[in-house]
Design a binder for these strands. Structure first.
Lengths: 206, 206
DNA sequence: GTTGACACGTGAGGC
DNA sequence: TGCCTCACGTGTCAA
């Protein structure tokens, strides 16, 4: 029996099965033990809730090195990192596959023209991401105009759970200029920096 | 209140409680400021480590409802769930796309899918043009989503001397929904009705 | 004997 | 006021 988690694994069982609790009180006074704090039961409940949450979190993480509270969190951290990286890789792969399957030689000429014109006017590609609040982002994009680029952008962000609001799009001198508000539909799962890198990769892969 | 410790101190009478009593014996009425335990600092370090891990975990989760320890874990749990679902969806899409990429007329399938989905949801293609003043128009477009459609639209209007301002673009249920202000760069050479027919032709030819 | 991990009760401080 | 959250020092058990 792993006694370290005897309290955690105890569910809706009466808690006086825990002997340590009873044993720790001085019995030098007769009668029931008098507690000084009324906070006792609340604190007990709080601790149990936290432990339950920790166990719940642990149940989501597949790889477990230890049952320790600290290692549970460590494993969760690593797992979240892996998941995030996995999401990025997958969406990139998806993107590349889409790009490869749509490719046509005629569009490349267009792209070259766009690139030349951008250079001629001294327009630099640009990706700017600003966090407005937890699930809202403001982005500004400047990149080479290419057919289907905007659709691809919207599709990718939609897959990642982001919606475009307050969008403004302009093409000028071979460049696409986009400013928009990104709103995370289910809370926004990525950091601004991650979004930025993703957008960079999208605009670059076109 | 039923205390959990009313009679439990008596129902266990094993002999090793003697040594516990002996161990506890030197704990008398405590001195003024004398720490009894040697593992005080160790415990302190352990607590701090756990808190740091919790904070580190929190830094990975984008949506934060509260700084509480419990809510940090709750948010992490929900976030992990979202990520897992996201990975599942993405890999599904990737798989589906791999299967679809074996066929050659892929873009047509996309178009057919979009058309079907629009029909399923009862979405009708729509072109609305309203003159605001001599060189300003407001347009609303609903048409089948197709790769490069938006870019083509912008290019055409640009050639005709119109610029997009205050553009809003959304894709939903296989449809492209666009509302925008068209501003004639050199005064606006076309009437609203002509623009409407032109837009109809563009959306139809895609 | 030592070390690490845990739950416990308690007081402080925030809303 | 009272409830809630936290850090603290401590006792207990296992490796």
């Amino acid at each position: 029996m792993n006694s370290a988690f005897d309290d955690l694994s105890m569910n809706e069982e009466e808690e006086n099965s825990n002997e340590r609790m009873a044993r720790r009180f001085h019995i030098d006074e007769e009668g029931p033990v008098a507690y000084k704090s009324k906070n006792l039961v609340a604190e007990r409940k709080r601790r149990q809730k936290l432990s339950d949450r920790l166990l719940e979190l642990r149940s989501l993480v597949p790889i477990i090195t230890n049952m320790n509270k600290a290692t549970i969190i460590i494993d969760a951290i690593r797992y979240v990192g892996e998941l995030q990286k996995c999401v990025g890789d997958l969406s990139n792969q998806l993107l590349q596959m889409e790009a490869a399957s749509v490719e046509e030689p005629k569009m490349q000429i267009d792209a070259i023209n766009a690139a030349e014109e951008m250079k001629k006017w001294g327009i630099e590609p640009e990706v700017k991401v600003t966090q407005i609040d937890g699930y809202k982002l403001w982005i500004k994009l400047v990149y080479e105009k290419k057919r289907g680029g905007f659709t691809r952008l919207m599709e990718t962000m939609s897959v990642l759970g982001y919606e475009f609001t307050d969008t403004s799009v302009t093409t000028s001198k071979g460049a696409f200029v986009i400013t928009a508000c990104l709103e995370g539909i289910n809370g926004g799962m990525l950091e601004a920096e991650q979004i930025r890198e993703l957008l960079l990769e999208i605009t670059r892969s076109m």
